[in-house]
């Protein structure tokens, strides 16, 4: 009875996800596409929850649906409006090149999906999954945390996370290279301002909670950073563009903090005769928290910088 109900729920969830993905791609109106994409991300987070991966579900909801949605909506707003003219006068005509490109992308995606499906059949159900889980479980006591996801991300495979943070840093350098940030939004009215007043501290508190709880439950630097960035985005949307993101050198330090702290800890351990990022078990918990705090600040600063779409200007005359 219960299993059947869950099966029905899963089938509905899957159908909704595929339907939303199709609707988002097929929509002619870009704004509608973005809104459908946000709904798609939220349902995808539910799917991750059903797969018993709450860490991924949190990250998907906060980054995939929330911040990416905000980024896409902001990008739409900066685009010159052209829908009014083109939709009335003529149907959008695709050149041969465009059509070919679309088919190429479709074929590549289909090939990728086919390869993923094939590799799924190759996995000997049980053994491969258990081998990895057992290896993590056997060493979890030495990792300094009890959440296996954090243990993998910040200890066993800390290299990967260091490189991910380096990718984020490179991305923000690219965003800054685009030039000064877009002009901010106008100061919001009383209703939105009062929401901002209590939502911002709540988001900061939630970020701190996610960071701390990541050691033994779903959470961690990425989810916390995205939540902290959400506070910055809300402040920006309310027209408070003089807060929400540090300025000048403070911003540079925040952006580089993740990679910097990782390297600092790694090299310090190196100097003490341990392998690079090979934490001594007694110190592992504290070092992971230190790195995650810096990473959270870096991730949040990067995401807010991406939202404003350029290097923040040093001084603002408008207030």
């Amino acid at each position: 009875m219960n299993a059947t109900m869950l099966l029905i729920f899963d089938a509905l969830l899957l159908a909704s996800i595929i339907g939303l993905a199709w609707a988002a791609l097929a929509s002619a109106d870009a704004r509608r596409s973005v809104i459908l994409f946000i709904a798609f991300g939220l349902l995808l987070a539910v799917a991750w929850g059903r797969l018993l991966a709450p860490d991924v579900a949190l990250a998907e909801a906060a980054i995939g649906a929330g911040l990416t949605g905000a980024l896409l909506l902001a990008a739409l707003q900066w685009q010159p409006r052209k829908t009014a003219d083109t939709t009335n006068s003529e149907q959008p005509t695709h050149t041969l090149l465009e059509t070919g490109f679309r088919w190429l992308v479709t074929l590549l995606c289909a090939a990728l999906a086919g390869m993923l499906a094939w590799s799924l059949t190759q996995i000997d159900a049980g053994t491969a999954k258990d081998a990895l889980a057992n290896a993590v479980a056997a060493n979890i006591d030495a990792s300094g945390v009890s959440n296996p996801v954090t243990a993998v991300l910040l200890n066993f495979r800390a290299y990967d996370t260091l490189l991910e943070l380096a990718v984020l840093l490179t991305a923000v350098l690219g965003i800054f290279a685009l030039g000064p940030a877009q002009a901010g939004y106008r100061i919001a009215g009383p209703v939105f301002t009062s929401l901002t007043r209590w939502l911002t501290p709540l988001l900061i508190l939630t970020a701190g909670y996610l960071l701390w709880v990541g050691a033994h439950a779903p959470g961690g630097a990425f989810q916390a950073g995205a939540t902290l960035a959400a506070a910055g985005v809300v402040l920006r949307l309310a027209g408070r563009d003089q807060i929400g993101l540090p300025r000048g050198n403070a911003l540079r330090i925040a952006l580089g903090a993740g990679v910097g702290m990782f390297l600092l800890v790694g090299l310090a351990l190196f100097a003490l005769g341990r392998p690079f990022l090979g934490y001594p078990p007694a110190w592992a918990g504290a070092l992971i928290l230190l790195i995650e705090t810096a990473a959270m600040l870096a991730i949040a600063a990067t995401l807010v910088s991406a939202f404003i779409g350029g290097q923040p200007t040093e001084e603002k005359t408008r207030c």
Binding site: G189, V191, F192, L195, W198, L199
Partner: peptide, 16 residues
Amino acid sequence: LAVLAAGATSAHLIAR
């Protein structure tokens, strides 16, 4: 409570 506040505010913003 969070959904209440967010829902009411966004409905207000859309309507305005």
